[in-house]
């Protein structure tokens, strides 16, 4: 089966996943025994105002009817109006998603760049100092809460040393670059604005480090154990017997094969980075989707919750697809059938 037809089949799967996710999210959010109109209008609202709000946003209709209306408008590319911000959900997602994506992607890149070599080094130096260091550091990474880590990083690098900014995407006295991709680093490069670029890189470091520490630790541990499985294999021995240098044996023969489980982890990690961004975004005043999602959920903002969930499902499935294609590329014996 060619890659193209495989991708097409997966795309059909995408649609099924999205429909399933939409039904479950819609059903779950309407199981909540509270009235979003009361949440939106608060303590002082009169009964008339609450009724008018329900009427305006169709909350007085039966749930299946509400779902039908939602799906119909969704098929027209309309995600509805947020009950909280009173703006189209699509506009909100468009404003907030790039910030989260940039942060998660940076965190992921940092985790891969640090986690994989750390795992390899740790495995090859098993039970020696480098191994112990990696294991301790990753044990801490796996157990430290992001919230605490974020505050410590801010307190030290921003509050004490003053080396890095403690929040936001860019310096408050530097205008952000014109929006093209929504990623400040990319957009400022496109605009040829080095000041904005450096400022956004600076602002990315601490939150990406805080967010990426956990996944770095997971990737390092996964890489280590998978290297430990691979290293005693016959083909590694054969490579050594051929007289290849240790570095070549480790990196080209062993590491490549050890990567498959790590790639799976990376895929899953990216999803968890997106969701872990909620806390990181709060601590670092990062105007991303995580905070939007939390506020929406707390305020029973159904259209916004639906929008965020669908977008998250889309990102997850896309990541899975990339991971699956990645397997084949790493190990051509894996054929997608």
């Amino acid at each position: 089966m060619t890659l193209l037809s495989y991708l097409l089949r997966r795309l059909v799967g995408f649609a099924a996943v999205l429909i399933g996710v939409s039904i479950i999210t819609f059903g779950l959010s309407h199981l909540v025994p509270t009235d979003p109109a009361v949440v939106a209008l608060g303590d002082h609202a009169t009964d008339e105002q609450i009724d008018a709000f329900r009427e305006k946003y169709g909350l007085n209709k039966p749930v299946p009817e509400q779902y039908r209306i939602y799906v119909t408008t969704l098929l027209h590319g309309d995600l509805g109006i947020s009950l909280r911000t009173r703006r189209p959900v699509a506009d909100d997602l468009h404003d907030f998603f790039p910030a989260t994506f940039e942060l998660s992607l940076t965190a992921l890149i940092l985790s891969i760049l640090i986690g994989i070599p750390a795992g390899v080094v740790s495995a090859t130096a098993r039970n020696r100092l480098p191994d112990h260091v990696v294991r301790i550091v990753s044990l801490i990474g796996g157990s430290v809460p992001i919230f605490w880590l974020g505050l410590i990083l801010i307190g030290f690098f921003y509050g004490r040393l003053g080396w890095l900014p403690g929040g936001a995407r860019i310096d408050k006295f530097i205008p952000p670059p014109p929006m093209v991709t929504g990623l400040f680093t990319v957009d400022s490069l496109l605009a040829g604005n080095s000041e904005a670029f450096w400022s956004s890189v600076h602002h990315l470091l601490l939150p990406a480090l805080a967010l990426g520490y956990f996944s770095t630790a997971i990737i390092a541990r996964m890489m280590r154990s998978s290297m430990l499985e691979v290293l005693p294999q016959m083909y590694v021995l054969a490579a050594r017997a051929k007289g290849l240098r240790q570095r070549r044996v480790v990196w080209r023969h062993a590491a490549r094969n050890a990567l498959i489980p790590a790639v799976t982890t990376i895929g899953v990690t990216f999803g968890s980075l997106l969701s872990g961004a909620v806390l990181t975004e709060t601590i670092f005043s990062w105007p991303g989707l995580g905070r939007y999602a939390t506020s929406s959920a707390i305020n029973l903002d159904f259209p916004a919750v639906m929008g965020v969930t669908l977008l998250a499902a889309l990102v997850y499935t896309a990541t899975n697809l990339i991971v699956d294609v990645g397997y084949q590329w790493l190990d051509p014996r894996i054929r997608h059938g």
């Binding site: 505050l151 801010i154 307190g155 921003y158 509050g159 003053g162 403690g166 929040g167 936001a168 408050k172 709060t282 601590i283 670092f284 005043s285 105007p287 905070r291």
Partner: peptide, 20 residues
């Protein structure tokens, strides 16, 4: 007047102490 959104109060505290 620049009102910056800083949702975490611990971060507000640091910004105040640093002078930002």
């Amino acid at each position: 007047v620049l009102i910056s959104h800083v949702p975490e109060s611990a971060n507000q505290l640091t910004q105040l102490q640093v002078g930002d």
